[in-house]
């Protein structure tokens, strides 16, 4: 439905290069990227704050990148919500209804619906400066949705909230999308939001889209070093491919299920690695001896790093650590399936 084609924009020393994205109707699309990679600029280009230097934005077969922002029918919710400080919550929400010249009855009906749906009745007469972050966010979303935009752009909607509120509003965003089905483009630097909400995710880095796919796909099969690191894959190992075996050091070969020759990078997710005191005789094709060099407590888990010529990090439950009596400097075996090895 929303199609971005070869979009380029230079702003000062920053440049968005050749962005191509395709967002289907009713989709919840997440663009993921670290700070300063041009996420906000991308949204502003779509909504019409800037003219692109090259490329275009389409709604179906209508080219919208030539239109004024007020003609694009795009709902925009900024990172800091950008509510109009001189207007009450009610006036903020009615703003779009009035500007778009929506008929009074229809406008009142939509206003009622969205206010009830988001439970913000009690805020209506207040000014934005008196609202909490979460309340401001709901107001900003109501203000955008009440005009029935074709797409809703959310710029890091959860990043200004504390962790607990964030959980609640993540659910709220899901509920909004499940019910209203507004096509949504949500931007964030937090992969867990992508996992929780996204039906598709695109990873943005230095003004370029690196990878697009279902969140789980991107998580399991990052296509580059950067994506792997950014979505939280550890154990990024360089080696030399010889068919289904990759030589990663003089005496260590890692079995994979993919044919690869020549220099290659592989990743193994920490939760796919098993640690044991004795060599395991299991279905795992990769068994490597090593020594524990680091143990970090992380909630109910331990993040254990083993020096096995190469450094490998595994996630182990506390229970397992206690049962095996794992300690720093202890010799152990690491095991993982060849299918768990992802070759980039």
């Amino acid at each position: 439905m929303l199609r971005i084609e070869n979009l380029c924009k230079k702003l000062g020393s920053f440049e968005l290069t050749d962005i191509n994205l395709n967002i289907e109707k009713d989709e919840y699309f997440i663009v993921l990227g670290p700070t300063g990679t041009g996420k906000t600029v991308l949204l502003e280009l779509i909504a019409g704050m800037y003219q692109p230097d090259k490329g275009s934005v389409w709604f179906g077969d209508a080219k919208i990148s030539d239109l004024y922002p007020e003609q694009r029918s795009i709902g925009f919710v900024y990172q800091d919500y950008a509510l109009f400080p001189h207007l009450t919550v009610k006036e903020n929400i009615f703003f779009g209804i009035k500007c778009r010249g929506i008929d009074v009855n229809e406008g009142n009906k939509r206003f009622r619906e969205i206010v009830d749906f988001l439970n913000i009745e009690y805020l209506l007469d207040r000014f934005p400066s008196t609202l909490s972050g979460g309340e401001q966010q709901r107001t900003a979303i109501a203000r955008a949705l009440v005009t029935s935009p074709r797409i809703l752009l959310l710029d890091e909607p959860l990043s200004a909230l504390d962790p607990r509120t964030k959980q609640i509003f993540q659910e709220e965003l899901r509920r909004i999308h499940d019910n209203l089905k507004t096509t949504t483009l949500h931007i964030t630097h937090d992969f867990s939001e992508a996992m929780a909400l996204g039906s598709q995710v695109g990873v943005l880095h230095n003004g370029e889209i690196m990878q697009v796919g279902k969140p789980m796909e991107v998580f399991r099969h990052p296509n580059s070093h950067f994506v792997a690191e950014f979505v939280g894959a550890e154990n990024i190992i360089e080696g030399h491919g010889r068919g289904k075996t990759i030589e990663v050091s003089n005496n260590i070969n890692i079995e994979t299920i993919m044919d690869k020759t020549g220099p290659s990078t592989l990743t193994i997710r920490p939760e796919d690695i098993i640690i044991s005191r004795e060599k395991l005789f299991s279905s795992a094709q990769n068994n490597i001896p090593g020594k524990i060099i680091n143990m970090i407590h992380q909630g109910p888990l331990y993040r254990i790093t083993v020096d096995a010529d190469i450094a490998l990090t595994a996630l182990v439950t506390m229970q397992a650590v206690e049962e095996m009596g794992l300690q720093k400097d202890m010799p152990v075996w690491v095991a993982f399936k060849s299918a768990a090895v992802h070759v980039l």
């Binding site: 502003e44 909504a47 019409g48 704050m49 004024y68 922002p69 007020e70 694009r72 795009i74 709902g75 925009f76 900024y78 950008a82 109009f84 703003f95 779009g96 500007c99 778009r100 010249g101 203000r143 955008a144 005009t147 935009p149």
Partner: peptide
């Protein structure tokens, strides 16, 4: 961005 948001809401 205040003005810009107003424009996304339909203002000239």
């Amino acid at each position: 961005r205040m003005e810009f948001v107003a424009r996304t809401l339909g203002c000239s």
